[in-house]
């Protein structure tokens, strides 16, 4: 008799916790489809009486959120592409190429992980201001060209590549850069996917830095635009929920499709010993 009871307790608790976790997201989606005013009407409604897409229409026509969406997509993709290239080059060099000071340099890089981004954000702003990059995508991009976490992740993975393969290519007369490009990069594919999802999502969701750099509404990314809109349109609950859905959904879908890789990245990153 104990087993069925324990079974119920475990699965019941799981279900309850899952419902509580999913609830804000489900309500967001549901409220975004409600006619104006329904989300704040009493008694409370959980599902729309007449599902409507009017708020999404308003977002993409009157508020031109399509442009904001494209800005975010472009920036997140650019940061991902550039940082994957830079991080994979450096991570591979640290893992497989022998040079003086390799360990010391890597230890120094790891030590910088303790510095919170708040410390560098002020001078970095002055720097991009001096470079004339305020209110430009380039200004947002510079902060993400290379990351210590990315270099670390690639290095962990690249250490497992067989040396024989690289040596054989050297014997065949391939240059070191050719080896990186034609042999190493394809072999790094799994970890590049993992790091790519990671980077894309954090760039997509990033708030403080784009908020500081981008001053013109036409350049805003989704989080910045949404924070801005939520001040102006406090009363328009359904509209704001539609905005939240547009902001959250792409990242959520990407995660659902690539969650194996994403979770792998977390567990790889957490084994620091």
């Amino acid at each position: 008799m104990r087993r069925p009871l324990a079974f119920l307790a475990v699965n019941g608790a799981l279900l309850l916790l899952a419902l509580l976790t999913a609830f804000p997201l489900l309500w967001m989606l549901s409220a975004s489809l409600m006619p104006t005013g329904e989300a704040t009407a009493l008694p409370v409604r959980l599902v729309p009486s007449h599902p409507t897409l009017e708020h999404y229409e308003t977002l993409f026509t009157r508020l031109d959120l399509g442009r904001t969406f494209r800005n975010t997509l472009f920036l997140a993709s650019a940061v991902t592409a550039v940082s994957l290239l830079c991080n994979s080059m450096a991570g591979y060099a640290f893992a497989k190429l022998r040079f003086r000071g390799r360990k010391r340099l890597f230890a120094l890089l790891l030590a910088t992980l303790v510095v919170p981004p708040q410390v560098t954000v002020l001078p970095l702003f002055l720097e991009i201001r001096a470079l004339g990059l305020v209110n430009s995508f380039g200004g947002v991009l510079v902060a993400g060209i290379a990351t210590v976490f990315g270099i670390f992740l690639i290095r962990q993975f690249a250490q497992g590549l067989p040396d024989e393969l690289l040596d054989a290519a050297r014997l065949d007369g391939a240059s070191e850069l050719q080896i990186y490009w034609t042999i190493v990069l394809p072999l790094l594919r799994p970890i590049l996917v993992t790091l790519g999802v990671f980077t894309f999502l954090s760039a997509w969701n990033d708030f403080m830095w784009p908020l500081i750099v981008l001053t013109d509404e036409s350049k805003y990314t989704l989080p910045v635009a949404l924070a801005n809109l939520s001040g102006e349109h406090v009363q328009d609950t359904e509209l704001m929920m539609a905005g939240a859905v547009v902001t959250v959904l792409p990242g959520l879908l990407l995660f659902l499709f690539l969650q194996k890789q994403y979770i792998e990245g977390i567990t790889l990153g957490s084994v620091k010993e």
Binding site: A18, T21, A22, W27, L201, N205, F207, A227, A244, L252
Partner: peptide, 16 residues
């Protein structure tokens, strides 16, 4: 389900 909130945009869920 438990992990989904991690990948959401903080600004958006703060609005929610």
């Amino acid at each position: 389900v438990f992990f989904a909130p991690v990948v959401t945009t903080l600004v958006a869920v703060a609005v929610v």
